[in-house]
Amino acid sequence: MLDPRAAGLVALLAGVWALAASCRPADGPAPAAAGAWLLALLAFAGHWLLDAGRGGGVPTAAHTLASLPYWPLAAAVLFVAWRRFPPAPAALWWGAALAAAVAGALLLHQWGGTVRVRVRTDMNAIPFGNLSLCLGVLALLGGLFQRREPRWGALLVVAGVLGLVASLLSGTRGGWITLPAVVLMLAVWRGGALWRRWSSLPVAWRGAGWALLLALLVFAAARVWPRVEDLFSDLHRFAADGITGTSVGLRLDMWGTAWSLFLQKPWLGWGEQGLALQLQRLIEAGRLNEQARYFGYQLHSDVLDTLARRGLLGLATLLPLYLVPAWLCLRRLREAGAVAMAGLLTVVMFAGFGLTQSQFRDPNSLAGYLVLMSGVLAVRGLAVPGRRTG
């Protein structure tokens, strides 16, 4: 988890920023696109809070922050502030690079060349690995399409690689499944331009680049293979003996339970407290592995957890958090360039993360997505039509 004092400082600075922005006259009417993202945030938070009323007014079940449903509202305020003071694209690239580099350096220090399969941090390994991967990809994107200063681009690439290294050391398999989609999207978007730029670099630069890529691939193979073996072992034990005490077996057990509970109450779901009580009953009856209670009764899938907890109405408020920014970035891809692609990649990666983790019930993952997405949508060039960014 993040240090509460650090989180409080960030919240205080964000509040000061929002207050200053509210006192500044707007340059013009906000585009309807901004309203779509604000509406998505308000709908998600509003339904979450209204749903809590069914369980006595407690916003969330056990083992998570009671303030979590209010965070999309805070993100809406921060987004409005950023719309008044749009950050430059460089803030996105260097912010992602700094975070990715720190994450990579921290885990390399803790790893120290040991044989550990997963390096632990104070934060849960799953959100740590996922956020490191996403920030690393964004830093790489900024570096690969840095036009003016190749040396700055090289620094961004190195920081991006450190973010990927942090993800590998965390052992977070759920995030790795998004990488093929990332590579495919970049190849389809500007694969030819990227290859031409690479070919125009001096031979020494290209040699260093190939060496870095080869080292990363060798390192990745050494880190990924043990986790892949664990994956197949867990699948075999679940299929052959019904063992649900493993990482994969527990997820399959919870996913089946989530789907079954959704079918019983498809429209509104069980509610926050209702789902926790029902899962506890299933555990006591031996129909669900007891480890589920230690994860705060979250079912390790954003979609399935939402369907069981808040039904189809809940899914209707969850999907716009992905679809609205994807649409906003896609329609500006030609003009906004790398900034719009950063938004698309963020959406795709977080959607992938949510396949095996209820990330919007995790404070770090939820905060990461809300801040990244609101920031990307407010970046100068994407938010203001007619200003092209690299």
Rank of each mutant, 00 (worst) to 15 (best):
A316G: 13
A97S: 06
A139S: 06
F44W: 09
L344D: 10
V10H: 04
A220Q: 06
L106H: 10
L268G: 02
A139P: 02
F262R: 00
G209W: 15
L133Q: 15
R206H: 11
G375K: 00
C329W: 09
Q110V: 02
F262E: 00
A62W: 07
W225D: 05
A11E: 01
A32G: 13
L78A: 12
L212R: 02
S199C: 10
A193W: 06
R227S: 13
L321H: 09
G286T: 06
G192Q: 08
P25N: 08
G160W: 07
L250F: 11
G46H: 07
G174I: 03
L2M: 10
G28L: 00
V183M: 02
R118V: 13
A166T: 04
G46L: 05
R118P: 00
W225P: 03
W267R: 15
L319C: 07
F219P: 04
L328M: 07
G142M: 09
G375D: 07
G375Y: 00
A6I: 14
F350D: 01
P150S: 03
P226Y: 09
W198I: 06
A181K: 00
P69Q: 01
P127I: 08
W93Q: 11
L78Y: 05
F145M: 02
L307N: 05
E229R: 15
T114K: 11
T356G: 15
L319Y: 06
A6K: 11
L304D: 05
A74R: 04
L318T: 03
C23T: 11
Y70Q: 10
V303E: 05
G207M: 06
F219R: 06
W111C: 14
R309L: 05
A43G: 14
A21T: 06
M1R: 02
V371Y: 09
F360C: 01
Q280H: 09
L321P: 06
Q291P: 02
A220W: 09
F350I: 03
H47G: 04
